[in-house]
Design a protein around this nucleic acid. Structure first.
Lengths: 219, 219
DNA sequence: CTCCTTAGACTGAACGGTCAGTCAGTTGCA
DNA sequence: TGCAACTGACTGACCGTTCAGTCTAAGGAG
């Protein structure tokens, strides 16, 4: 009815709202089945306005993907800043990836990774972005290990090698939990990841069992 | 012009040709961007015939996904049958997953996994299928290990646990190689996987370096 | 052997729904 | 007055699916 509803915030806030809405919708329906009309409806705007901001559907969706992944890494960074023991840090990291939950208010966000991968596989620009994102992820792991070594919590190991391996393992495990494989429930995935870390880094895992047994939110 | 062109084979063969064409196209363009018209063109038929065989586009694509994954496992089975040493078997398995190549004449087949995952994440039926497929995959690994134990090649280990972990690691690694991550090239992925297997199962890895250095076909 | 029938394989053309993107214009603030 | 934010109505392309009908091989019946 009216232009500039004034109820909504600034242009930047609206843009963000659209990105968030798009990310949610991609997670729910998938990249290809997300319509700009849906995004528009979710933020209470006209489809035309979405185009006004993003130019094309493709740009909107691609930016939304980036937006969401970045918010994931931001969460990881925060988490890393709030703890210092290597054990607690790894624990938090593994929970972040293996246990389905909304790490940053985007529900079912794991679905986004699948779409990101599928998109990256076919579009060079997205591919470049993804590589960057993943390097960031590995460097977070690397930093945790280096800090652990420096603090004398663990012995010297090849931090980079560990990061690459551990990141791959976590990816693989979270595929299973995201897809609800009955043989690899979140508990088990968590255990496998922590066992590997403990074994490789030489940390003893004690008294970690029988916790958060009902914490695996089933989406 | 003519019905029953007679140049083509039986109905079954045509169905298969369509499935194969669909799988190829999904690998190239992605699930959502595959048109029945393209499939029809690739097999030299009319779009109507494709519908005639599969009813709907969705059924065609879903079946194509299954078709291709099964051909992957068939390749794995064959491979398992042709060697018996645990070391050679694992080596072949790792190469199958980590080194980009056409395992069964469908080029760029890794892209199919991304689409399968994305599809499984959202559609219960596909999800069930995928779980089954993955259990088959793990049981292949498990069998290799059990055979190795029985033959006295390696010490007793929890074969199931190893299978789940190793499968996850391989998934994670092949994501990186499929997406051409510069830090995780096929060589390195291969090395990481084999190191893990060797370390966990207690096999010594000797004289495996400096092989197939130029074998990583860049798609 | 020939005619007739039937069923399955197959097609061209058209239909109808869905959307991304356009456009001409409106509103309100600075 | 001018500019940025915003909209409703529209359109043009795309594409899955339908349909009415064609062609052919196979299998009797005479």
């Amino acid at each position: 009815m009216a232009a500039r509803p004034a109820t909504e915030g600034s242009a930047d806030q609206r843009r963000d709202a659209m990105l968030r809405a798009a990310a949610e919708l991609i997670a729910e329906r998938g990249f290809a089945d997300t319509r700009i009309a849906d995004v528009a409806k979710r933020v209470g705007a006209s489809p035309a306005l979405v185009i006004y901001y993003f130019g094309t559907k493709d740009r909107l969706l691609t930016e939304a993907l980036r937006f969401s992944e970045q918010s994931f890494y931001a969460a990881a960074d925060r988490l890393l800043a709030s703890t210092s023991s290597i054990e607690k840090r790894l624990d938090a990291l593994v929970q972040l990836t293996c246990i389905p939950q909304d790490y940053d208010d985007i529900p079912g966000a794991w679905g986004l990774w699948f779409d990101l991968w599928a998109q990256a596989f076919r579009h060079p620009e997205v591919k470049r972005d993804r590589v960057e994102l993943d390097q960031r992820w590995r460097s977070i792991i690397e930093r945790i290990v280096r800090d652990g070594i420096r603090a004398g919590e663990i012995a010297e190991v090849d931090a980079k090698q560990f990061a690459v391996t551990f990141a791959a393992l976590l990816d693989g495990l979270s595929i299973q939990t995201a897809l609800e494989d009955p043989e690899v429930d979140p508990q088990r995935a968590y255990g496998i990841a922590m066992d590997f870390a403990a074994g490789t880094l030489g940390i003893s895992r004690r008294a970690k069992r029988r916790r958060r047994s009902s914490a695996s939110t089933r989406r």
